[in-house]
Design a protein around this nucleic acid. Sequence first.
DNA 1: CTGTTAGCGCGTTCAA
DNA 2: TTGAACGCGCTAACAG
Lengths: 336, 336
Amino acid sequence: MNSAAGRAPTSADVARLARVSRSTVSLVVNDVPTARIPEATRERVLAAVRELGYAPDVSARRLRAGTSRLVLMPLPQIPLNPSIDTVIEHLSEKLRQSGLTLLVHGDRTTTGTSAARAWAELRPAAVLVPADRCTKSSVALLRRAGIEVLMISERPVPWTDALVFDQGRVGAEAAEHLLDVGHRHIAAIVPSGPLQGLGRDRAEGLRDTVHAAGARSEEIPMDATHDSAAAAAAAVRRPGGPTAVFTYNDEYGALLHRALDDMGAAMPDDVALVGADNLPIATFLRPALSSIALNPVEIADRMGAAISSLLERAGHTEPIEAGVLAPPVLMRRETS
Amino acid sequence: MNSAAGRAPTSADVARLARVSRSTVSLVVNDVPTARIPEATRERVLAAVRELGYAPDVSARRLRAGTSRLVLMPLPQIPLNPSIDTVIEHLSEKLRQSGLTLLVHGDRTTTGTSAARAWAELRPAAVLVPADRCTKSSVALLRRAGIEVLMISERPVPWTDALVFDQGRVGAEAAEHLLDVGHRHIAAIVPSGPLQGLGRDRAEGLRDTVHAAGARSEEIPMDATHDSAAAAAAAVRRPGGPTAVFTYNDEYGALLHRALDDMGAAMPDDVALVGADNLPIATFLRPALSSIALNPVEIADRMGAAISSLLERAGHTEPIEAGVLAPPVLMRRETS
DNA sequence: CTGTTAGCGCGTTCAA
DNA sequence: TTGAACGCGCTAACAG
């Protein structure tokens, strides 16, 4: 295992080997249409590129061009789930088709200006940042540095371009379904801890929809432990309790599912359950948990499109029509 | 939403505002110990930095220094799970403490030389690459470019530094436990599709351990569907079938769990079950699924240490003592 | 002691 | 097809 060799091959190395100038190497490598290079020369250059394993240095390229083809995505502070995984996978592919490279920043904890500085150092063309990772001034810092910012937010943001993913729609979708099948008293689980904000958004969407239908709603706090789930199950099963529960997501749903089962409650006959995020676990429970799915492929498509239009508007000032992320859809299974 | 302002503030902008030279800015920003700058000047420079939101351009810095502080991690082709998520989180933090930045490359599909080229373009100091994403020649390309390569592999790799995560240990750990509690005929589930390689490694570790104890083993193919799980459950429950099953991971375990339950098999009395990866789902099943856990925090620590020593050996030729990733541990629950 | 000038590293582009 | 200049931050050599 030798240590890595000192220095990457440069365009000068390629030029030397192909016995042309660095300019010619650049023209061939970038396939510049205006410069007509004889086929023989082009071949010589490409052969040299292959032989040396030459890959142009993005740093140097960016420095010269003043702009990069990198899109930086800091991770949200909440844990990754299969949906986010799918979003990353498809977004990366979509951006690649536009000649952009998606990089995910490993740091998960920094927020605000210090985070913005860490992102700005890389001079990406655009940053796709979850709302929980930035503030107004950190966005300002990025934009002053010529970096486009696209926020992923639960609600509209007046001070920057944002893709709005209304988490309330998730709860609302669950509510519509549960109302449809006849429930008139519906509870929403609200997790504690870092997920609370998200949980509250979903619960509020449910509440509004339930009230609009003239039915009754309530919120039940719970955290991700069996004990807390047992307490929540007891609250659900109290006399006069709700006949249906939206469980925030499928993991909380699984916990509550088990706690209700332990109490001898039948699903969906005694209590109906609807989770969210369409995690694999939902299909493994018995009875299988209905879930509000997030449609990650569609979400990735919209993100990719938004970033592309952001980067193409170049100097224009119209806000991009970022709009709302793909609406969630019900995966009806056995618990509802 | 105005378009991003044209150009990031440079050290020249800071110098102008602070009325010093660019050199002075550099000395202050990098806290160079040999150059004594009067407190007043230093303050002026830092004030200008703050006012402009100046962040040094890593491209320019890298170009000058010839080396970057970036560590690039291409994602494995298998889907992310909570363990990998935890590894990324902790590795990022560990590297940050050494002044390194972890970037995760969004592209998940490219392999071999074209992947290596995409990574080489970024000129990271090191690449942390899963074995399924690279070949001997792609590693050679990276190393010729002065990029350190650390492979994450299931088995020792003679041609590069590698952290060996012996997946066989996962199966072996399951086998030891099941033998301990008295089983003499143990099956291993082997998934089909992209997970097959991993599954086979785990199954072989189990087989070797079981045979060494003079007991009997078998492999049962299965894919991630309820139908296939039902078929696997039938195979398990056939007359003379195994009394214990290692399920490859907890998701396959959950599927088999359900299928066995549907057949009326009691766990662990009729059949014992042990999964792997310690996914949340394991604790949500009833009876809760025992699982072989991967210890992601420890894994991240070892990865971080390996990368640091790789980058410090600078020019030396001794192989780093990368060694084996943290051994898996049994999380005993109710199914075994 | 404090700060500046000059030139480098690499790919791109315009004028020749 | 090429020479030359450029973009930005770093640092060695040097000046006030």
